[in-house]
């Protein structure tokens, strides 16, 4: 049984008189531990799909089942609690709370879970180590480089040990070298922690590191042939 079931999902937006349908009866299944990349032209609905799976948006019709829970049926409050436990969200940019240090930013999602301070500390330290930022724990976002900020964002997304981590163009705002570091980090997390990862990107090189590559086109998902650009670690896993 797949971890994520996207079942006949349609999403429409109304803009005045016209209706946009970025997703039309989309079907998708993602296995536990898979690293999936999602490509597609700008405005095709990649973020929309990602947001639906992350539970911050609701489909017009269809069902999304994550780890046995039909999240399309949860109330807004229940959905928030579900996100706290099950979703790690990596944003493209501007996503850290500016008044909080790296440490406090990473600790934030743990505050929503039943956990005492020392347990939170232990988890934050593990996450900081994972992204190699232990020495920047007490820095504020403005004192960090773009790449470091993004690593804090990744640490914040994985610190609760969520069921799924989603990333919406995580390297979109970074230079090539930093992008490569971030991608390498994501790949490592998937390898070592067996994190299920769904990453939206418009960069084919970035997409290539995923073990499974999807393309969104006219509201439908197309599976990319694995052989087209073999990922480095594809054979290892």
């Amino acid at each position: 049984m797949a971890l994520i079931h996207v079942n006949q999902v349609t999403k429409q937006f109304r803009k005045g008189a016209e209706t946009i349908t970025p997703l039309k009866e989309a079907e998708l299944q993602i296995e536990r531990g898979q690293f999936v990349s999602l490509m597609g032209a700008s405005g095709t609905g990649k973020s929309t799909l990602l947001n639906l799976i992350a539970g911050i948006d609701k489909p017009t019709s269809g069902r999304i089942i994550v780890d046995g829970t039909d999240i399309t049926r949860l109330s807004r409050t229940k959905l928030a609690a579900w996100r706290a436990r099950n979703i790690g969200y990596i944003f493209q940019t501007h996503n850290l709370i500016p008044v909080l240090t790296a440490y406090e930013n990473i600790e934030l999602p743990l505050m929503l879970l039943p956990m005492n301070r020392s347990e939170r500390r232990r988890r934050v330290e593990v996450a900081l180590t994972a992204v190699d930022l232990v020495d920047r724990a007490n820095h504020y976002p403005r004192q960090l480089s773009g790449g470091q900020e993004q690593r804090v964002g990744i640490a914040r997304a994985i610190v609760t040990d969520p069921t799924v981590v989603v990333a919406d163009e995580p390297t979109g705002d970074l230079d090539t070298e930093t992008s490569a570091q971030i991608l390498e980090l994501l790949e490592r997390l998937n390898d070592e922690l067996d994190t299920t990862l769904l990453m939206v990107t418009h960069d084919p090189d970035a997409a290539a590191i995923a073990e499974r590559r999807l393309k969104l086109d006219h509201g439908r998902l197309i599976e990319h042939a694995q052989a087209a650009a073999p990922a480095v670690h594809a054979g290892a896993s």
Binding site: A80, W82, R83, A84, I87, P109
Partner: peptide
């Protein structure tokens, strides 16, 4: 919005 994405509820 970021807080709510992390799991903060409307009540929070």
């Amino acid at each position: 919005a970021v807080l709510q994405t992390l799991g903060f509820s409307t009540r929070h």
